[in-house]
Simulated assay, not measured.
Amino acid sequence: MERNLAQTAKLFGISRNELIRRMRESELLNERNLPRYPTRDREYLRTKEGQWFHPKAGMQYSESTRIKQAGISWLAQRLKLQLPTPPEEKRHVA
């Protein structure tokens, strides 16, 4: 499972802008909010490439950062964030 920056920030209980600021200060993101070291951090972060067709402008391309599942605890440790507590098990065996 992968999360975008907004979903990851919500998981940690901070804003997307705060997460981006901390990641930039820790040199994990570049000025375009993409992984600064994509090869080094490939186990935790990745760049998602997208494209769509605009009727007047033609093909449009985008890139965004995705945090992999293994990157959640890694990011919490790097940024000194509190790891979210797992939800309580709601299934009960009869």
Rank of each mutant, 00 (worst) to 15 (best):
G50E: 10
A57E: 13
K90A: 04
R24K: 14
L5R: 11
Q77M: 10
V93T: 06
P55K: 13
T85I: 10
Y37A: 10
W74I: 03
H92K: 15
R40S: 08
A70L: 14
S73P: 03
L29N: 01
E25M: 12
I14L: 14
L28S: 01
A94M: 04
T39K: 15
L79N: 08
W52G: 08
Q7S: 09
M59S: 10
I67W: 00
G71Y: 01
R42G: 01
R40C: 05
Q51Y: 02
N30M: 07
P38I: 01
T85Q: 14
E89N: 08
L5G: 04
G71I: 01
N33C: 09
A70V: 02
R32P: 00
E43W: 03
R22A: 06
R32E: 09
Q7H: 10
R66A: 09
Y37C: 09
G58D: 10
K10A: 15
G71T: 05
S26D: 05
R32C: 03
H54M: 08
N33I: 03
L83G: 02
E31Q: 12
L34V: 03
K10F: 03
I72T: 07
A76M: 06
Q51L: 03
Q69G: 04
S26M: 04
R3Y: 14
R78G: 00
E63I: 05
Q77H: 13
Y44E: 11
E43D: 14
E63L: 13
E2M: 14
H92Q: 12
A94F: 00
R32L: 09
R24M: 03
K48G: 06
E18M: 10
P38Y: 02
G50L: 11
R46I: 00
N17W: 05
F12R: 13
Q82M: 06
M1Y: 07
L28D: 04
A57Q: 14
P55F: 11
N30G: 06
I72M: 08
I14N: 12
F12P: 11
F12A: 12
S15H: 10
R91P: 01
M1C: 02
A76P: 02
K56M: 06
L19E: 04
L83F: 01
E18V: 08
R46E: 09
R78A: 14
A70N: 13
Q82P: 04
V93S: 04
Y61F: 12
E18W: 03
R22I: 01
T39I: 10
R3Q: 13
K56G: 02
K68H: 12
H54C: 08
I67P: 01
W74T: 07
R42D: 10
S62E: 12
R21T: 07
L81D: 02
G58F: 05
E27S: 14
K48F: 02
P38V: 00
R42H: 05
P87T: 01
L29Y: 01
R32G: 03
E63P: 08
R24I: 00
R3H: 12
K80Y: 02
R36G: 00
I67S: 03
H92W: 09
L75M: 13
K90L: 11
A57H: 14
R42C: 06
S15K: 15
I14P: 11
A6N: 13
D41E: 02
T39V: 12
I20M: 01
R16A: 04
Y61P: 03
Q60K: 15
P84R: 13
E49G: 02
M59P: 06
Y61E: 08
P86W: 06
V93N: 04
N4A: 06
A6M: 12
M59K: 13
M59H: 07
T39P: 00
T85S: 11
P87F: 00
G50S: 14
